[in-house]
Design a protein around this nucleic acid. Structure first.
Length: 323
DNA sequence: GATATTTGACCGAG
DNA sequence: CTCGGTCAAATATC
């Protein structure tokens, strides 16, 4: 599916790595969905059939990808390299300004890629540019934190509509919010990292961090936010770039599973009063992953599942056409 | 008038 | 030279 969409999009120069990555991604998503399905419908765990098969497919793809990494490593740096195009302006040249620019554009760290149905993410952004990107149907929008001037907040983001599904925005975050001016509620979630009552169904916190460190919080998925970026960038930026590349053509909407087991489109903004509250707690994936561990030693690449497969980008983008 | 957005130009990397 | 990222003047909006 993803492959066909890639082809349909006229991606003539797609590298094998991309195909493999997409295949792996699809397999991983299938795995997750099967797991969810069984959990919802049967609530039990006797599913080594389809789930195991999906896992195996995923495994195979990942091994292939691991092999390809040796020769196609550049592919996974897509976002990072794309964002490191410009370095500095010799003049206008306060050191602060130049370093800011370097950092804002990723500074070689790469960006964190998130795919959402909305650009909204509880922070106030100011658009400062728009660019037509070669081989891309949609322009890329450049945003910086609105409090850049006030607080010197260096956070920036790039937003581009998905090729396959324009309703999905591929958002790449750079830099770190130092302003703390996001939505207060969200900021609380952000800052608290779920230490307070992250179990509250109303809170939707996406964690980019280590899955094990946040393992106590099943529904914790920390969304990109102030204070998280450093960790995020360190721990998952490279892989997330890869995964994002792989999932570029996805047509999935961010959804979550409600208490009734139905898929609810995810609103990535926190549950603000005037917003429809279809947002519920995410499905408990920790048990799911315990039942079907996806952390695999994969030959050349021993990725953890949270590295290979960014939950924020894929796992919770459940399908509205799946069943 | 203040603030946000648009858009052409500029810059550096490759 | 091309491309992507950013700047900054012009314009729009409140």
């Amino acid at each position: 599916m993803a492959l066909t969409t890639a082809l349909a999009a006229g991606d003539s120069d797609v590298l094998p790595t991309r195909f493999v990555a997409e295949g792996r991604d699809s397999a991983a998503r299938l795995y997750a969905l099967l797991g969810q399905c069984h959990q919802l419908l049967a609530g039990s765990s006797t599913l080594h059939g389809p789930v195991g098969l999906a896992e195996q497919i995923f495994h195979c793809f990942d091994r292939a990808l691991a092999k390809l990494h040796g020769v196609a490593g550049a592919e996974e740096d897509n976002v990072a390299s794309a964002s490191s195009g410009r370095k500095r302006k010799p003049e206008h040249g306060s050191v602060a300004a130049t370093s800011k620019r370097i950092k804002a554009s990723g500074g070689g760290n790469g960006g964190r890629v998130v795919r959402k149905a909305t650009m909204d993410d509880n922070f106030l952004w100011r658009k400062y540019g728009q660019k037509e990107i070669k081989n891309s149907k949609h322009p890329r929008f450049y945003y910086r934190c609105s409090y850049k001037d006030d607080h010197g907040c260096k956070a920036t983001k790039q937003v581009q509509q998905s090729e396959a599904d324009p309703s999905i925005y591929v958002i790449t975050y750079f830099g770190e919010h130092t302003c703390r001016h996001g939505n207060d509620a969200a900021a609380a979630v952000v800052d608290g990292g779920g230490d307070e009552d992250s179990s509250s169904p109303a809170k939707f916190v996406i964690s980019f961090g280590n899955s094990t460190s946040s393992g106590s919080d099943n529904s914790a998925i920390r969304w990109p936010c102030a204070g998280d970026d450093a960790q995020i960038n360190n721990e998952s930026s490279q892989e997330s770039s890869l995964v994002s590349e792989a999932g570029e053509e996805e047509e999935l909407r961010p959804c979550t599973v409600s208490d009734h087991g139905e898929l609810v489109e995810e609103s990535t903004t926190p549950p603000v009063p005037d917003q429809p509250l279809g947002l519920t707690a995410l499905p408990d994936l920790e048990p799911l992953l315990e039942a079907y561990p996806l952390d695999m030693e994969l030959g050349d690449s021993s990725f953890g599942i949270d590295e290979i497969f960014n939950f924020d980008e894929h796992l919770f983008y459940s399908i509205d056409t799946a069943w």
